Amino acid sequence: MDEAAVRATILIPNWNGEAFIVPCVSSALQAAREHRRITGEEIEVLVVDDASTDRSVERLRRDCPAARLLQRECNGGFAEAVNEGAQAARGELLVLLNSDMAVQPGWLAPLLAPLTEANVFAVTAKTVDWAAGAPNHLNMTARFERGQFVLEYSSPPQACRTLFFQGGCTALRREVFLAAGGFPSLYHPGYWEDYDLSLRAIKAGWRIIYEPRAVAHHLGKASLSARYGDASIRLLSERNRLLFTWTNLSGAGPRMRHWLGLPGGIARDIARGGGAVRLRAFLAAARR
Rank of each mutant, 00 (worst) to 15 (best):
S223A: 15
S223Q: 04
S223D: 01
L224H: 02
L224C: 02
S225I: 02
S225L: 10
S225W: 08
S225N: 11
A226I: 02
A226V: 03
A226L: 11
A226W: 01
A226K: 03
R227F: 04
Y228K: 07
G229L: 11
G229H: 11
D230F: 14
D230I: 02
D230V: 08
D230N: 12
D230R: 14
A231W: 12
A231I: 08
S232F: 10
S232T: 04
I233S: 02
I233P: 06
I233M: 14
R234N: 08
R234E: 13
R234T: 04
R234G: 04
R234M: 05
R234W: 05
L235F: 11
L235Q: 05
L235H: 05
L235E: 09
L235P: 01
L235G: 07
L235N: 00
L236M: 14
L236Y: 08
L236V: 00
S237V: 08
S237W: 03
S237Y: 07
E238F: 02
E238N: 06
E238L: 08
E238Y: 01
E238C: 02
E238I: 04
R239T: 03
R239L: 07
R239Y: 08
R239F: 09
R239S: 02
R239C: 05
N240D: 09
N240W: 05
R241S: 00
R241F: 03
L242T: 04
L242K: 03
L242Y: 04
L242F: 11
L243A: 03
L243K: 03
L243V: 01
L243N: 00
L243C: 08
F244V: 01
F244Q: 07
F244A: 03
T245I: 06
W246V: 02
W246L: 12
W246T: 04
T247I: 05
T247G: 02
T247C: 10
N248E: 13
N248V: 06
N248F: 05
L249A: 10
L249H: 08
L249E: 09
S250Y: 11
S250E: 15
G251V: 07
G251T: 10
G251Q: 09
G251L: 05
G251R: 06
G251E: 13
G251Y: 13
A252F: 15
A252C: 12
A252T: 14
A252N: 11
A252R: 15
G253H: 10
G253V: 14
G253L: 14
P254C: 10
P254G: 09
R255P: 00
R255L: 09
R255V: 07
R255A: 04
M256N: 09
M256H: 10
M256W: 15
M256V: 14
R257E: 05
R257Y: 11
R257D: 06
H258D: 03
W259V: 08
L260D: 10
L260S: 12
L260A: 15
L260W: 14
G261R: 00
L262E: 00
P263W: 07
G264A: 12
G264Y: 14
G264H: 14
G264N: 13
